[in-house]
Simulated assay, not measured.
Amino acid sequence: MGKTPAELSIPAASISTEIPDIPVSIPSQLLERRPDIAVAERQVAAANAQIGIAKAAYFPTVNLSATNGFQTGTLSNLFTTAARYWALGPAAFALPLFDAGARGAQMAASIDAFDASVAAYRQTVLTGFQEVEDQLAALRILEQETEIQNKAVALAQEALKLTSNQFQAGTIGYLEVMTAQVVALDNQKAAIALLGQRLDASVLLIKALGGGWQASEIPNRDKIGGKTKWSQFLPIPIR
Rank of each mutant, 00 (worst) to 15 (best):
V177G: 06
V177A: 07
M178Y: 08
M178G: 03
M178H: 06
T179M: 10
T179H: 11
A180H: 03
A180P: 02
Q181K: 14
Q181E: 15
Q181W: 11
V182R: 15
V182E: 09
V182H: 08
V183R: 12
V183G: 01
A184L: 02
A184C: 05
A184T: 01
A184K: 00
A184N: 00
A184S: 06
D186A: 04
D186K: 03
D186Y: 05
N187K: 05
Q188K: 13
Q188W: 03
K189D: 00
K189M: 03
A190F: 02
A190Q: 11
A190T: 08
A190I: 01
A191R: 05
A191H: 04
A191M: 04
I192A: 07
I192V: 07
L194G: 05
L194F: 05
L195H: 06
G196K: 09
G196T: 07
Q197T: 01
Q197P: 01
Q197F: 04
R198N: 01
L199M: 13
D200Q: 15
D200K: 15
D200F: 12
D200T: 15
D200W: 05
A201I: 04
A201H: 01
A201V: 07
S202E: 03
S202M: 10
S202K: 11
S202P: 08
V203Q: 14
L204A: 15
L204I: 00
L205I: 10
L205G: 05
I206C: 04
I206W: 00
I206V: 07
I206Y: 03
K207C: 09
K207I: 12
A208E: 08
G210V: 12
G210S: 10
G211A: 11
G211H: 07
G212Y: 08
W213N: 09
W213V: 14
W213S: 12
Q214T: 03
Q214A: 11
Q214L: 09
Q214F: 00
Q214H: 10
Q214G: 03
A215L: 04
E217R: 15
E217M: 14
E217D: 15
I218E: 04
I218S: 08
I218H: 09
P219K: 09
P219E: 04
N220Y: 06
N220G: 15
R221G: 02
R221Q: 14
R221Y: 12
D222S: 14
D222E: 13
D222C: 02
D222Y: 07
D222R: 13
K223N: 09
I224W: 03
I224Y: 04
G225V: 14
G225N: 15
G225M: 14
G226D: 03
G226I: 02
G226V: 02
K227Q: 13
T228K: 10
T228S: 02
S231Y: 06
S231F: 06
S231N: 09
Q232K: 12
Q232T: 11
Q232L: 10
F233I: 05
F233C: 00
F233W: 12
F233Q: 07
F233M: 05
F233Y: 14
